[in-house]
Design a protein around this nucleic acid. Structure first.
Lengths: 241, 241
DNA sequence: ATGGTTCCCTAATGGCAGTAAGGAAGCCTC
DNA sequence: GAGGCTTCCTTACTGCCATTAGGGAACCAT
């Protein structure tokens, strides 16, 4: 007798779900975001359009699921890069994670761009898979910095030096994300995050092509500026020791 | 006899063009980017859909024209703010321009977000009105920094210290934009630009709402970090002297 | 076997971009 | 001022889209 696993029906369903998302991604890559339609995905699979409604409540949900996939894949890539460095070398781990993020972004421009400017940029419920996966992704960096903070605290603004409004907002955020750092350290982290992620955002949305054709050295310089803010040494973190 | 101005026909046509763009903007603000369709705009004006094709070659061109309008309006607002400060106080002028940019961005979130994630983020010809207006906008900041450089050069990396690839890319850019600064100074400018504009980009695309609800103080802090890079004093530039 | 569940289909609605063809109105020249 | 050209706008149409409704077939548990 077979092990009491998921039923055959369940397995087929999961396979279909996976195929739908794979086809959606293929269409995105090959023909752009606008080509990711319920009908086109179904057609590509040899199904009728309405059949897909047994798997996704509508176009928005499909878009959200695909976006969540991208976040999960990106998270895995970044975690793998991070874990290719020893657990105590936080500088190297962070740099590896950041570079892996950009590496994925430029080798998967369609996917990364989709994350920022997906068809439904607006109405997002905070409990959607998309948002959960997005927070998980960001959490990878946050936790690595928290580890760093625990092992070797970096310089932060003195309590009270922070703008009161920022301090209050970050208190809420730190509570909700359950990270164990003072808000001042969270602020330093987010400042770095905004610069890195913002640079990628602009790169991928073609907002910098008027001046740059290759932003790799700009990104690297951004890292070089970021690393000392976390009390780390760029050369040390870059060299293989 | 009337002055030899544009013919009546021309005037009517210009008025219709203006109304189309105004209605498109109204739809964007009231119902989001997806509501800006040829048909909806025409309906709102009491016209049939196909009639709009006498004014715009297609949906993409309409989108581009509206985007160009936004850039032009933003440019005017930023220029006005800049010119409200004396011509020789470059620090105050720059700060005023930056704050005006964010002010417009948050009071016109729909429009500013549209600039980044308009329906046709992809294929953009460099001679489209959208691109021209976009470069004019960015030029406002570039030129103010160039003035500053002429009046009181700020510290820049030594020649050769810059990554060769960046130097080469910026040489091309500096030539094409006809600005009279060494590439090292252009690099400092673009570094600042990327931070400011990137922050706004992320804010407006809702990429930071997981942590922040009000980014005004974050933006202000960004300015505070930026200003010394241009050899200016934040307090001096902020105070009214 | 049977009854419910799941899956998928066709049909249909209404909206979209864009094309085609024709009518009316303005304008310009002879 | 009469024809003729241009411009503007219309309706009709194609083919796409999202989504809903309803029905048939396969599957599964009892």
């Amino acid at each position: 007798m077979a092990a009491q696993g998921p039923s055959r029906r369940d397995r087929v369903r999961q396979a279909t779900l996976a195929e739908i998302r794979a086809v959606a991604r293929k269409l995105l890559i090959e023909q752009g975001p606008a080509a990711v339609t319920i009908n086109a995905v179904a057609r590509e699979m040899g199904m009728s359009g309405p059949a897909l409604y047994h798997y996704f409540a509508g176009h928005d949900e499909l878009v959200g699921a695909v976006t969540a996939d991208f976040f999960r894949e990106l998270t895995a890539v970044v975690e793998a890069a991070r874990d290719s460095c020893p657990p105590d070398e936080h500088g190297r781990r962070l740099l590896a994670a950041c570079r892996a993020m950009r590496g994925w972004a430029i080798t998967h421009q369609a996917e990364f761009g989709w994350v920022f400017a997906s068809p439904n940029t607006a109405e997002r419920r905070p409990d959607s898979p998309r948002e959960l996966a997005g927070r998980d992704f960001e959490q990878v960096f946050l936790e690595e910095v928290a580890e760093l903070w625990k092992a070797r605290p970096f310089p932060v603004p003195a309590p009270g030096e922070l703008h009161p409004s920022i301090a209050e907002q970050l208190r809420v955020y730190a509570d909700s994300s359950g990270v164990d750092m003072p808000v001042e350290a969270v602020h330093v982290f987010l400042t770095c995050w905004i610069r890195l992620y913002g640079l990628l955002c602009m790169e991928v949305l073609n907002q910098l092509s008027f001046a740059y054709s290759d932003l790799e050295p700009v990104f690297e310089e951004c890292l070089r500026e970021m690393i000392p803010k976390l009390g780390l040494d760029y050369d040390e973190a870059t060299s293989s020791r």
